[in-house]
């Protein structure tokens, strides 16, 4: 049938497109295990030196600790705030709901440089010492819209009468939330935590301007990109980070789908 010939052309195109999407990521491990110090073909030979060097680098380890601290705190903060916003917007009608939600979601489309610069100006004006905390505040702000997008899907696919039923059966409002709503949106919460964690771990601009002298993984990478000698180690680090991101995302996706399946939602449809 002609549908198949049409589908074939599109399929070839789509696979090529995926290849384009993955091209840089696929190059990462190739150069991470290449013994040559210059990032170019032809390859020299196989080595794991760069991973060993990476592990021995004290600044990098400090950057890793910082990044994990920031990502953990920011994802918890963003998800907690996101739970409030998602529940408010999916469950209640109140004046100014649309406007307030639009404002909370604004960082999703606002260039990060503007968020970073304006926050920096205020923090410096107030005499606040730049630290991991200031990065956490900024990261929670930009993670919050993504958290809300995920959590809103979880909350809105929830039958409202479930909570009413629990209340009707004698539970308090809090009991109904704890025993019924929370377990049912838990996959969404986990998914939101993981996505926020991934965003924060990868975020450069806010970390670059708001961390003061503390390195994070992206700012450390940025500082090393100028030195050709450091590049192979960065490739090794990138390989590890990409693997970590994929694992986190896969877990997040698993929970999101399981949550959907449990409350009878569709398996497709993601963040947007």
């Amino acid at each position: 049938m002609s549908i198949h010939s049409k589908g074939r052309g599109l399929q070839v195109y789509s696979v090529l497109y995926l290849l384009f999407l993955y091209a840089p990521i696929l190059l990462l491990p190739i150069f991470a295990f290449n013994s040559g110090t210059i990032i170019a073909f032809p390859l020299q030979g196989f080595t794991t030196d760069w991973f060993v060097q990476m592990w021995g680098n004290a600044t990098l380890r400090r950057a890793l600790t910082n990044s994990l601290t920031i990502a953990f705190s920011a994802s918890v903060l963003a998800t907690c705030l996101g739970v409030f916003a998602a529940r408010a917007s999916t469950r209640f009608k109140f004046p100014g709901r649309g406007g307030m939600m639009a404002f909370i979601m604004l960082p999703m489309v606002l260039p990060e440089i503007i968020v970073a610069m304006s926050l920096l100006v205020v923090l410096l004006g107030m005499g606040v010492q730049l630290s991991l905390l200031t990065v956490i505040l900024g990261h929670a702000l930009i993670c919050m819209p993504y958290a809300i997008a995920i959590l809103s899907t979880a909350f809105s696919s929830l039958d409202r009468s479930l909570e009413e039923a629990a209340y009707d059966l004698g539970e308090s409002k809090w009991g109904a939330f704890r025993l019924v709503t929370l377990p049912l949106v838990m996959p969404g919460i986990i998914s939101s935590l993981l996505i926020s964690f991934t965003i924060s771990l990868d975020e450069f601009i806010i970390a670059f301007f708001l961390a003061g002298n503390e390195p994070t993984l992206p700012t450390y990478i940025f500082s090393q990109l100028r030195f050709p000698r450091s590049i192979p180690v960065i490739m090794a680090l990138g390989t590890v980070l990409v693997l970590l991101s994929i694992v986190l995302l896969a877990i997040g996706e698993y929970f999101r789908r399981r949550g959907n399946a449990r409350i009878g939602g569709s398996p497709t449809g993601g963040l947007l």
Binding site: D159, E164, G170, V180, L184, R262
Partner: peptide, 20 residues
């Protein structure tokens, strides 16, 4: 008297069976 203290119970249109 709130719903959780009334001597009534409800069968919902969607049944509201807790799926978990």
């Amino acid at each position: 008297v709130p719903a959780n203290k009334r001597p009534t119970n409800m069968v919902f249109q969607s049944y509201a069976i807790f799926p978990h």
